[in-house]
Design a binder for these strands. Structure first.
Lengths: 137, 137
DNA sequence: GCCGATGGTTCGTAGTACGAAGCATGGCGA
DNA sequence: TCGCCATGCTTCGTACTACGAACCATCGGC
């Protein structure tokens, strides 16, 4: 099976990128999950359940996660006028700024990797990853 | 900058693979870190400090991690005859079996992704990931 | 033989994650 | 319209993950 080598490569690079993300997050006291939350909320204002589903987490986990982020002033809870049970989550200005900072840093950290490839190879890599993983069949 | 698209793609696929690994691990009560430990120990018998460094974790974190895995009978601590301060870690037969099981499952879970690519594309993807990330300059 | 360096463990603290139980609101069927 | 189940979220209890500081044992050079 040729696919084994590919799976190995994917897992390997996954852990490598996770390492980079974890390190950058740690510098600002953000876990991988919080990092992801910031990334997601940059262009969305989901309800708790949606966000939990997106992250693959239990609702109860998200409550705590949002609690802590709210305490730090990074996100806020909003009421939903259509349904008073629903809680919407969104970034505060401080949260947005931090998100942009962090993702800027991620880009900087991974730029050397990108620069090891020619522009054509980069495009191709993006394309291949998209085809393989972004399975919209 | 073209590299931004690549960074985005890398981060995206990272979270996707992390999702797969987390799910498969959870089915057997293994965290991402424990999964990684199993993977590493499949073909190594490092000392605690080496393993910690490899994982990017503090020694103290690893003590607990190995404690729990040992309690479950997955790994064992061994004395190092050259230096009596040193503790070597290795998989038990049960740990090895679980590791093989889990990594088989990972391969199965990611096989559909691989199969979306032609054999040549797979090779190319492996090659590109290696060049970009496996920076042995 | 002493002493600083190295290798691990222990302890306290905070975050992460789950499931069960609980409360409020919504919406449907009688 | 009322009753009741479903849905959305929070709270609580538990276990794991992770760190740093303090600690003990051993090693190696002097």
């Amino acid at each position: 099976m040729t696919s084994d080598a590919l799976v190995d490569a994917l897992v390997r690079s996954t852990f490598q990128v996770v390492g980079v993300l974890t390190r950058i997050g740690a510098e600002r006291d953000l876990s991988l999950t919080q990092l992801r939350v910031l990334g997601i909320l940059r262009d969305r204002r989901p309800r708790m359940t949606e966000l939990a589903a997106f992250l693959g987490l239990d609702k109860s986990t998200l409550s705590g996660l949002v609690d802590r982020a709210e305490r730090r002033g990074l996100v806020a809870r909003g009421k939903n006028p259509q349904d008073r049970r629903v809680v919407d989550v969104f970034l505060t200005p401080a949260g947005l700024e931090l998100a942009e900072q962090v993702y800027g840093e991620v880009r900087r950290a991974l730029a050397p990797a990108a620069e090891r490839l020619s522009p054509q190879d980069r495009d191709q890599l993006v394309q291949l990853l998209h085809t393989a993983l972004h399975s919209h069949d």
